[in-house]
Design a protein around this nucleic acid. Structure first.
Lengths: 192, 192
DNA sequence: TCCTCGATGTATCGAACTGATACATCGGGT
DNA sequence: ACCCGATGTATCAGTTCGATACATCGAGGA
């Protein structure tokens, strides 16, 4: 999951671990930052696996040695990224994964985009059902704070479902113009 | 964090690990369930620490032995819970912790409630600022999906801030009527 | 001029938590 | 008579967090 995010970001441009972490904030959640305790080990693993290479930048002036490491995708890494983006299995619509998958929708084909959006929506609808049934069964037995928390949570889910509905409608409109399963990798009408 | 949730639930009534896990769903998130891989070790640790005791229920009819363990708070456990509830430090307004703390507001004194709500609010406002500044600085350099994700995330945060504002106003009204540290648990005028 | 401060940058460790899996028993419906 | 879904307890490898520790850079004020 973090692996996907790292590959996706490095595909846009090579960068340092530090910058990677900052960009990750915008991509994950969008406000959730990853800790370095996860990022650096992950970068090492990706490097060992041959998906990225590091270009250590021992700055020229012998005296002041500032350690900087620029990471960049290898050909294998790009391949790996494509595989992961195309996959779109059930894990793609869990809370944390979904944000990452969505952030890289521009590099994902239209079919997979739609599958993920719909998977996410049904995941949320499932939660709605659980929540409403458990709330009505516990009617009166819970204090007002717990109730208020559940109410707010439920409203958040409903809001996300509405958001997804709009996105799905937009996607379908795009697909209608250029019907599914096109060979062209870059679907023309995406970024405005 | 999980420890607090367990103590809080067991304070309401003794129960099995399984039921504890189900109740946790309503309290954490409110849709996030804890895994048993966390719950059972936690219960063991709490027991070792002397905060809870287990009452194994080897059902009478010698033949069919169904293993059931009912957990319940000890006096030390109740004390521990009170300490934790009163604490309300900065960790109390992080995403996951906040939900749990809020769920047990009925057992928390008015002063702490207010402190936590305001802490949470300023935490969110901080995020808003980061987000808006990073969004405007990256103007145009990001694709429409990433942008849409950030927009939606920002809206979620704004929505939670409004929610907190209402809650804070309600709390203050309650405090004004019956100044801090009241014995009465239920504050009259709440959700509209 | 020096000096502190905040941003940049790399790195590690223990603790917390997840997701999968395993096993067993109970009650109800077919 | 049998199966299935809910109840119930338990473990383990792997992932991620949060805190902490370094060190360097540029800018601003004393």
């Amino acid at each position: 999951m973090l692996e996907l995010a790292v590959l996706g970001l490095l595909n846009e441009s090579p960068m340092h671990g530090y910058e990677l972490n900052k960009r990750l904030k915008g991509v994950l959640g969008p406000f959730r930052a990853i800790s370095y305790g996860t990022l650096y080990p992950c970068l090492n693993a990706l490097q060992t696996a041959g998906f990225i290479t590091s270009d250590t930048d021992a700055s020229e002036t012998g005296a002041g040695r500032r350690k900087k490491t620029t990471y960049k995708l290898t050909a294998e890494g790009k391949e790996r990224l494509q595989e992961q983006l195309a996959e779109g299995g059930p894990s793609a619509w869990e809370d944390e994964s979904f944000g990452v998958r969505f952030a890289f929708f521009a590099q994902t084909d239209a079919e997979t985009r739609l599958r993920i959006l719909e998977g996410r929506r049904s995941r949320l609808e499932e939660r709605q059902e659980n929540a409403t049934s458990s709330m009505s069964s516990a009617r009166g037995r819970i204090d007002r704070y717990t109730l208020e928390l559940q109410r707010h949570g439920l409203e958040s889910v409903e809001r996300e479902v509405r958001w997804l509905n709009e996105l799905i409608a937009t996607e379908r409109a795009g697909v209608a113009v250029r019907p599914a399963r096109t060979r062209r990798t870059a679907t023309p009408q995406t970024a405005k």
